[in-house]
Design a protein around this nucleic acid. Structure first.
Lengths: 353, 353
DNA sequence: CTGAAAGCGCTTACAG
DNA sequence: CTGAAAGCGCTTACAG
């Protein structure tokens, strides 16, 4: 037999022991004793007995009755990745202190999961959903807040980075270092951030009078997590033999992959090529060389998402929420960027594996 | 008003529409139509109507009635870390395909959370708990399986790495490369793996006739995630000025910190010092130099934990489960290890920051 | 083969 | 100030 070393009594049992009605006991347990003017003494008896018997209300029954679950769903692309987990950390901070729990699911860009999960979570009676870097297509009867999801649907609150500022920060840093021929790695088509960020880069380049050479722009294809896709695409870039002195990657992991491919071709970082990442994941600072990167306040974005969602759940969606909450990046200058070399570096043919 | 674009009808409503009893509808929805010999035609009508009206059972009500929640709790030390998240990925794989969801909480080594979370999850009616690298003190009325938790309590199934083999793999690799003076960084006292792993190292060293010099053994103190603690302790090691040619770190992140500190002191990796990590987190392969490390099959450990837990939930704890399920490491040789230098490297005084 | 009814454990109008 | 009773939406003996 399974051991049952601890089992909370039910309200009924506790009430019987106390010789009080369930109503009364329920009220004082829920802190409404004073509101219902229940005798101080009675309240103390109840609280004491609850403590002694280790009573805690069955949340399933409570949920059914109140039609509330105190649970939200979080949907992320991938769970084993610096980006999502940093955001998750922030979400946890906020949620748990309000007594909420959360389910996590990762869709790994599989369409069936992407479509199915929101419904499954609804079935699980979540009171709201946080979507991290993933677009939700269905209209849902509960509040949803999106982190970097760029949803334009009414009622969805977006937590978004100021991409204009991000692009400006990175490009002006490179410009100041004397870089003129800058290569770019765009994100995968499925990432909600890709277009938004690219448009911001084009804009910032214009303002800063930096020319973007189309031959120096490549785009991530593979959905694999890790640095593989970044390596791959950087090798292509090298094969085109168009010289450049700096590279702005879609994110840190991609930047790491790019550095690997660049080294493979005999190029030194940052001496020959400067590389700028994006996100500032934990590994960025310990990488060799430590990455210069545009920092997204990931944990803070998670916290903001959670507290916003909690607000929407509490107050309903009626009051017009700002459709997007903007959050600001900053540039962390480390060792992967340096002044542009006076001569363009030789673009060795990548020694493909 | 909050938009309600989609709202499942209740069983009652659906039954009314169909002019059938709730019992019948419930049975066919749950696939027990044949078992109860409900007319094929009736079954089809029900299924069709359910699809048309988008009926899905309210899981809260179902849980209350069945006293099952189809939910498990996962408790990890830290959510934004390679180790836990890899395990989480594996857990998700198994759980979701059986229709289970999971709550995640991270205790961050705070005693109050560590103690409070299992109870909170019980209150949430989870049917089982997976504890990752954390010891559960309370006896719980539900199955718990522990990943690297080294629980000795009856009824708890442990998923554990074969630490003997892990130690042997790492040390024999180092020995073969000619290393004789090897430094060690032990884990923090709170990590369940620390002692187990250390004992295995002592044992393997004996077998391989490697002398462990107590002055070359340091232990992580700080609870901070990231490479900070590893750097810190490596600086101490350097300050003692006892020469060594190799270092075996408690985990990859620590190894990265150690490499940072070693370089800071002018040492080259792997030319002067070889470094071996542990875990093989995603970043290990892209680090510079790519880390030689003892690979733990983290994702697989998560999967095993989940499927074991599901089994326990299904069959009850009665049948004697093996108290521990052993899982095997392998050595991934990359670029952070090399033959020992013929002369002991100079132990520069660390230039502390 | 199908249905009426009880009950899971709470909360909360309603009544006094 | 306190309690009796209804009901949240299901599942499942029990009956026929």
């Amino acid at each position: 037999m399974p051991q049952k070393p601890f089992k909370s009594p039910t309200l009924k049992e506790l009430s019987a022991t106390l010789e009080l009605s369930q109503s009364t006991v329920s009220r004082v347990i829920n802190g409404e004793g004073d509101k219902f003017r229940i005798a101080r003494e009675t309240q103390e008896r109840v609280l004491h007995a609850a403590a002694v018997h280790g009573y805690s209300a069955n949340t399933v029954a409570r949920s059914l009755r109140q039609k509330r679950s105190y649970t939200v769903g979080v949907i992320v692309p991938e769970i084993s990745e610096g980006y999502s987990t940093a955001v998750l950390g922030g979400i946890e901070d906020e949620l748990l202190k309000d007594g909420f729990f959360y389910f996590v699911v990762s869709h790994r860009h599989r369409l069936d999961l992407l479509r199915g999960y929101p419904r499954m979570m609804l079935t699980r009676a979540v009171e709201g959903i946080i979507a991290v870097d993933t677009a939700i297509e269905d209209e849902l009867p509960i509040p949803v807040v999106s982190v970097s999801g760029h949803q334009h649907r009414e009622g969805i609150v977006n937590i978004e980075l100021d991409h204009g500022q991000a692009a400006h920060l990175a490009l002006s840093h490179l410009k100041m270092l004397g870089h003129r021929r800058i290569a770019f790695i765009k994100g995968q088509a499925f990432s909600s951030d890709t277009n938004r960020r690219w448009r911001a880069i084009v804009e910032a380049a214009k303002t800063l009078e930096i020319t973007i050479h189309p031959q120096l722009v490549v785009q991530l294809q593979s959905v694999d997590p890790g640095p593989g896709p970044g390596m791959e695409v950087t090798r292509q870039l090298l094969q085109a033999k168009r010289p450049f002195t700096a590279l702005f990657a879609f994110n840190d992991v991609t930047a790491m992959g790019a550095i690997l491919a660049l080294r493979e071709a005999g190029l030194r970082i940052p001496k020959d090529i400067s590389v700028v990442g994006f996100d500032d994941v934990l590994a960025a600072s310990t990488y060799n060389p430590p990455l210069t990167t545009v920092r997204q306040p990931l944990r803070n974005m998670g916290q903001t998402a959670a507290s916003t969602l909690l607000g929407l759940i509490r107050d309903g969606t009626q009051q017009p929420q700002p459709a997007t909450i903007t959050v600001y990046p900053n540039l962390v200058v480390r060792k992967s960027t340096a002044p542009a070399p006076s001569h363009l570096p030789p673009m060795a043919v990548a020694t493909t594996v």
